[in-house]
């Protein structure tokens, strides 16, 4: 822009000045970024119990000793796999159920907060803000509070992840729904369809592939989340992992078995979901 308007008599000079200024800004930005990075690194270093360089040399100590123990007791490996498999199923169930509920909630919230589709257009900001709130709340907050009320177990984790999922998917869904073609909706309205019918027959068929693809991606994320929440007491394989890690020496063979189970699950789910996502929406990457 500035190139077009500034001093037409000397376009070359104006262009070079502009380039230099831009380069200066980029350079300054880079310097600020590098300084921030070094500064925050040093703060983190000073507030950590063990130092970075010191820890770097010990980084393989724990994996090495765990693997050594695992190899020594390799005969117990099948038994460990069988033993922890039910917890793995629980973790996957938490992720699946919370994705299901979260996606349904997100769907409703998204439709209610999309311009042109909303049932109550005046309420759009309210639903938008509530999705923002749900997204901003980390799962652990809701999970810990619910564990206090309901006791440990899968349900608090499921509710916590479902609420967060509703916020996260709601935003993505609403972005997709904004681009939906409104003609089918208008057609349905002209024959007297109510809001639910308009959404069900007019909007959902258009957006379903994208929605399902997003929900699958979320399922991958939620498996990780549900493993982490288990670690703070919400059941599933994370809970077992914490027990094997904190009960002192001699159980790292079990920890390694859990690592392997979790790793395989995540990889398998990633593969399956990316396969189906590519089928549903080839343009998405």
């Amino acid at each position: 822009m500035a190139f077009l308007t500034a001093s037409p008599a000397d376009p070359r000079g104006a262009y070079m000045a502009l380039t230099h200024r831009r380069r200066l800004y980029s350079g300054l930005l880079l310097v600020v970024f590098v300084l921030m990075f070094i500064g925050t690194f040093q703060v983190a270093e000073s507030r950590n119990a063990g130092g970075f360089w010191n820890g770097l040399s010990q980084i393989f100590d724990f994996p090495a000793s765990a693997v050594r123990e695992f190899v020594e007791r390799i005969d117990r490996f099948p038994a460990n796999l069988v033993r922890f498999f039910p917890s793995l199923i629980e973790t996957v169930n938490i992720a699946a159920a919370s994705t299901l509920f979260g996606a349904l909630m997100g769907l409703v919230l998204a439709l209610l907060s999309t311009r042109g589709l909303a049932l109550w257009p005046r309420m759009i900001p309210v639903f938008r803000r509530s999705m923002d709130m749900l997204r901003a709340l980390p799962e652990i907050v809701i999970a810990l509070v619910l564990i206090f009320i309901m006791g440990g177990g899968p349900v608090p984790a499921m509710i916590a992840i479902a609420l967060h999922t509703a916020g996260a998917l709601g935003k993505l869904f609403s972005e997709v729904a904004e681009n939906a073609d409104l003609k089918p909706v208008e057609g349905l309205a002209s024959v007297g369809a109510n809001w639910t019918q308009r959404m069900w027959f007019g909007v959902l068929p258009q957006v379903a592939p994208n929605f399902i693809s997003y929900a699958m991606l979320r399922f991958e994320i939620n498996i990780r989340a549900s493993a982490i929440l288990g670690f703070v007491g919400a059941g599933g394989i994370g809970f077992d992992l914490r027990n094997t890690m904190t009960w002192g020496q001699g159980r790292f063979d079990q920890a390694v078995a859990i690592f392997i189970l979790l790793f395989l699950t995540i990889v398998v789910v990633d593969q399956i979901s990316s396969h189906y996502r590519n089928k549903l929406a080839p343009a998405e990457h």
Partner: peptide, 16 residues
């Protein structure tokens, strides 16, 4: 989660 556990053994508790 697993990285966190493995790294916590080497670097100790803290933001790093």
């Amino acid at each position: 989660l697993i990285w966190t556990i493995v790294l916590a053994r080497a670097f100790g508790p803290g933001p790093m």
